[in-house]
Design a protein around this nucleic acid. Sequence first.
DNA 1: GTCTATAGCTAGATAGAC
DNA 2: GTCTATCTAGCTATAGAC
Lengths: 186, 186
Amino acid sequence: MRPQKTLDKDVLVGLTEIFQSKGYEAASLQDLATATGLKKASLYHRFPGGKKQMAEAVLEHLAKWVGENVFQVLRNSEHSPEIRLKNAMVQIKVLYNDGKNTCIFRALSMETGINLFRLQIEKGMKEWLKAFETIGEELELDSKTAKSYAYQSMIDIQGSLILTTALNNPQIFDEALQRITSRYLR
Amino acid sequence: MRPQKTLDKDVLVGLTEIFQSKGYEAASLQDLATATGLKKASLYHRFPGGKKQMAEAVLEHLAKWVGENVFQVLRNSEHSPEIRLKNAMVQIKVLYNDGKNTCIFRALSMETGINLFRLQIEKGMKEWLKAFETIGEELELDSKTAKSYAYQSMIDIQGSLILTTALNNPQIFDEALQRITSRYLR
DNA sequence: GTCTATAGCTAGATAGAC
DNA sequence: GTCTATCTAGCTATAGAC
């Protein structure tokens, strides 16, 4: 059937890299082919829906990674909420490569992207908010505060990623993650 | 010499609209022509440096607007620092159209844009930080706190603009501006 | 200073050999 | 399943009439 399941993952990694760094419209099929090591026609064989389907696959792939490596960590009942929060922060650092990667929601939410992927982006963002809200409640915050902290956490992540890029200073991202943790644990 | 100085501003408004919403690479000359009401060749007459020069003009135009309508307001010695901060926040709401516009730094800081405009973006971001830092000091914050609040303010603005787009909810931007003000004035 | 027309190239996408 | 070759449409940019 499919001779190389391993390659499937490598292809997704290449696609992710391009869409994350360039956004949707600016990512050319040539860029995507080079990054994956496949020729354009081969990409179309795997993704008959073209560039749009490739971006959707990237969104799914990252949603799966975040589900397993962030949300799952936040829910892991073997540890206290404090430990779970800290562990999740480590994973978030990995996800964004210490602040050197941009968020896929940001990359795909310029004009054309937001029109194509509005539902996925909105759904994904709400899952992040819900995950932070839940850990907040488990840390004994009242529900209004838990909601507010969840929004502030996502704003800190997204905003610090922008500043990190603009000022070429990953320390900003690091400090933002620290601030999020401190807010919950003080 | 130049028969229509008024039009110059309209052209900049059109260019700004496109680069803000689509970013650099995804903004086509056709988009820019349509938005300005000029034909492509006419745009090249005004901007012999092509698309790059058009984006630079947008960055300068917005830097000028921000200088006059945000930074100047923050420095206006006729009012108390508290009033100046509140007035500046109103202007920031105007700049980002109540959260419905994206920031030009964000729009131009994806892959190709950041390579072309790194200096302008970094300079602009530092000016914003400096302006917030100064008003913080005038509000009697110690210099370390003033610096920290400046970063948090910019992170709140940038992050809340991302969430506002992703969730299609301008209230998030409004609340972020409110949070910035409250942090300084509590 | 603005336009029409067009050059030269790259875009996304497809056909068909292997 | 991957490739070379190719289609059409769109891209940035320029030439030259008015």
